[in-house]
Write a protein that binds this DNA or RNA. Structure first.
Lengths: 346, 346
DNA sequence: TTGTACGCGTTATCAG
DNA sequence: CTGATAACGCGTACAA
């Protein structure tokens, strides 16, 4: 079978502990034996058994990623790969592997998390979404374990988190529409139990209030983070007798769906309906018209989350820290107020 | 600290091995002690240490995923999450966790793979792309280890793989354009060192040959699997004195980029230029015009790959098996020959 | 049906 | 600077 540390020791004529020291670059070890051991390792094609190492060191050098129970939906959204890219970037840099765990039901979610916590296969966990009354928070409260949330905790759970100021961001997006003269503005949200959906809705309300525009329940829909959800929502909005002239979509995919719906009904964008999205995924530049969207810096959310988690892993004192990643409204052509480009493509 | 198997044994008044047997559902064990042990586990909040278990069982119950060295590019493409979704689906069903490993340089690629192979943290590896002269194949040849390739091996490496018949698929796509009356047809490929790029190019050539259309080197470009690559390629194609009237893009993203380029130059699609893509990602339905594309069943590629890998893990006899996932040309509006829809959105 | 003893491959502690 | 020895937590022959 594969060579173990003992085989190397035997061949190099030293003890296993010495080999171990060479591996971990122990300072007090002679250059000579270091060379000899290294050569023995080379000759035997030795590679350390990470399992045994982790068991002994009580550290797995890996972090777990808990994909929300709405797996399919989550995978579909361009948000996910970009976030993962950010996470992966710093994980690799810091020498951690990534353990992915999906789970389709909410119940299973909890079991997956507890397994991660007690299974000792990961040193910390990244939670990729936060919802109302999230049972996962409860689990974390009962079992102290390095964890970072992408989003924000609903209550005072002493967890680390990385988030945008979604209220302010939605305020700004809505305000943009108001400044362009819109008075009837719709809101297309995703899953209502998600905190982002609520936060962005709140920002939307704030902007309306400030402008003295009465809120209208009929102008707000919550569906899913997918194109289809935006499509359906927009269909219903445009069917209203006093239809909105602008729409804030809490996700770019929703916005794309909304634009498609408007197009199919014969409305022009932005002349008849203005649309603003969230996330600023790559596609926003390529859609027709290009989509005005709030850049939430997904990649940075990912790097920050991983960074924060690893901090906790290395120093148990760290807890309850949070990072707020700034947002920025990127104005393109879906809201008017500037030149409109036509064209083919996405 | 966390409870171990010994603590449970002590509490239940049995030996550790008995507890171990209860955990693994050993047949010959009395219902009574089974209950008692289970209760003790419950009371102590016991969860098995996966590291220790794996070390003892010599099986990690996890499979590794090796993301190609062009990490960024790979994450950007909708192909990836969909593939991952397929993999994740069966991995979860079969009780395997997923270990993700990225690496940016080719050199590092090899080290990542060898680490996976010898680190004992995974029972098998999924390779997500195959290129010419791939050094990873060499590594696999020298170190027998369960592995499955999404794509095909270039030579006779006895590895399992899951692929489409890319030659036939590209033939069909090109043939579709020829049947519509096109004679000057361009080809936009991705990274030339990737086998898919080559296979699809070959299918393109086959169709041309069969139709007696001479191949023209100036009509073929290779870039990256990204929108920008398609954009640039199309720009150059349309700048030719005898520009093509149709284009086969080896990836939907390339096709979208190509459409955008055509649009910006004032060409109409499909009237002036027809475009066919590959992969049939979700966006194809939503683009304007909707994109005719070869459905390669990404999700199925993922499930098949994971399935095949797990088969190998469980039965070392399995080797050199391969699965070819069927493809299907999905005709939409980017090639003409049917009614054209307009509209907004993606 | 259950317990004992040992091994899985490494690291850490303590001598020397 | 190096070598025994004891964990790390669990599975499994072998014995009872």
């Amino acid at each position: 079978m594969t060579a173990t540390i003992k085989d190397v020791a035997l061949r190099a004529g030293v003890s296993p502990s010495t080999v171990s020291r060479v591996i971990s670059n122990h300072p007090r070890i002679s250059e000579k034996t270091k060379r000899e051991v290294r050569q023995a390792m080379e000759e035997l094609g030795y590679h350390p058994n990470m399992l045994a190492r982790s068991l002994a060191k009580k550290s797995a050098e890996a972090i777990g990623i808990l994909i929300p129970s709405t797996t399919e939906e989550f995978f579909m959204n361009p948000f996910f790969p970009e976030l993962l890219r950010g996470i992966s970037e710093v994980a690799k840099r810091e020498g951690y592997d990534l353990l992915l765990s999906t789970s389709d039901t909410g119940k299973e979610d909890v079991r997956t998390l507890t397994r991660m916590i007690h299974g000792k296969r990961v040193d910390g966990v990244l939670l990729l979404s936060s919802r109302m009354q999230d049972p996962l928070m409860q689990v974390l409260k009962e079992n102290p374990f390095p964890a970072t949330l992408v989003g924000r905790p609903q209550d005072d759970t002493p967890i680390c988190w990385v988030n945008n100021d979604n209220v302010a961001a939605a305020y700004q997006a809505t305000r943009h529409l108001i400044d362009l003269g819109h008075q009837r503005i719709g809101y297309l949200g995703a899953d209502e139990s998600l905190l982002v959906t609520r936060d962005r809705l709140q920002g939307y309300h704030q902007a309306l209030d400030e402008a003295g525009i009465p809120a209208d329940r009929r102008l707000m829909f919550a569906s899913t983070f997918m194109e289809q959800g935006g499509f359906m929502g927009m269909m219903r909005l445009l069917a209203l007798p006093d239809r909105p002239t602008a729409v804030v979509a809490s996700d770019d995919l929703l916005a794309f769906g909304a634009m498609r719906a408007a197009g199919e009904l014969g409305y022009r964008i932005p002349e008849d309906v203005a649309v603003v999205g969230f996330n600023n995924v790559r596609l926003t530049e390529m859609s027709n018209p290009s989509l005005t969207s709030v850049d939430v810096r997904i990649f940075e959310l990912g790097t920050a989350a991983a960074q924060l988690l690893i901090e906790q892993v290395r120093d148990p004192e760290v807890t309850g820290k949070s990072v707020t990643v700034p947002t920025e409204l990127v104005v393109r052509h879906s809201c008017g107020g500037n030149n409109r480009q036509g064209g083919y493509g996405l």
